[in-house]
Design a protein around this nucleic acid. Structure first.
Length: 156
DNA sequence: GCCAACGTTGGC
DNA sequence: GCCAACGTTGGC
């Protein structure tokens, strides 16, 4: 059974254009340092799951396209890199604390789906990203929510 | 730059 | 194990 996820990223740091420019149009989703978001990746994401790639901290915030999980949970190498902002000296290499999945670009929406468009879509009323104060970089969504966003992105 | 929300830290 | 202080996120 396919599950659906929303991946949030700042386009200035790592956006859709970076993803499609990467080898095989894929990237390890490194740098997640929140336990709940990690647990989604570690315990629930399967190869073949689909995600919405969402651009945050930009004007306007928007969903840019669709990604697919192409590799399941494995250790995030940055936790052991002393030069990285994501270095975690307390993480044990024999029992890594931070895990990641690999995602690959599947489809760039014909038009970006802005936060405002999502707010006006009745089928997205319960979407976690629209809830005030939600700061998680990875959130689950239903298949219906995923399809509603994709439908908005394919119009126009 | 503001501020609400909320996860994390650390003293006790 | 409580909880106040602090830091971060992210829309506006």
């Amino acid at each position: 059974m396919t599950s659906y996820w929303l991946f949030k990223s700042e386009p200035d740091v790592f956006g859709w254009d970076h993803l499609v420019a990467a080898p095989d149009q894929s990237t390890g989703w490194e740098g997640v340092r929140n336990y709940l978001a990690r647990n989604y990746m570690r315990d629930h994401m399967k190869v073949g799951d689909l995600g919405i790639f969402y651009h945050s901290s930009c004007t306007p915030p928007h969903a840019a396209g669709i990604v697919e999980i192409v590799r399941e949970s494995h250790p995030d190498p940055l936790q052991f890199d002393a030069t990285s902002d994501y270095h975690d000296p307390k993480s044990d290499p024999d029992n890594p604390r931070w895990m990641m999945v690999r995602v690959k670009a599947v489809e760039r929406f014909a038009r970006s789906v802005t936060l405002d468009m999502m707010r006006q879509e009745p089928g997205l009323a319960e979407l976690l990203i629209l809830r005030k104060g939600n700061r998680l970089s990875i959130t689950p969504m239903t298949r219906d929510e995923f399809e509603a966003i994709a439908a908005l992105g394919r119009v126009g």
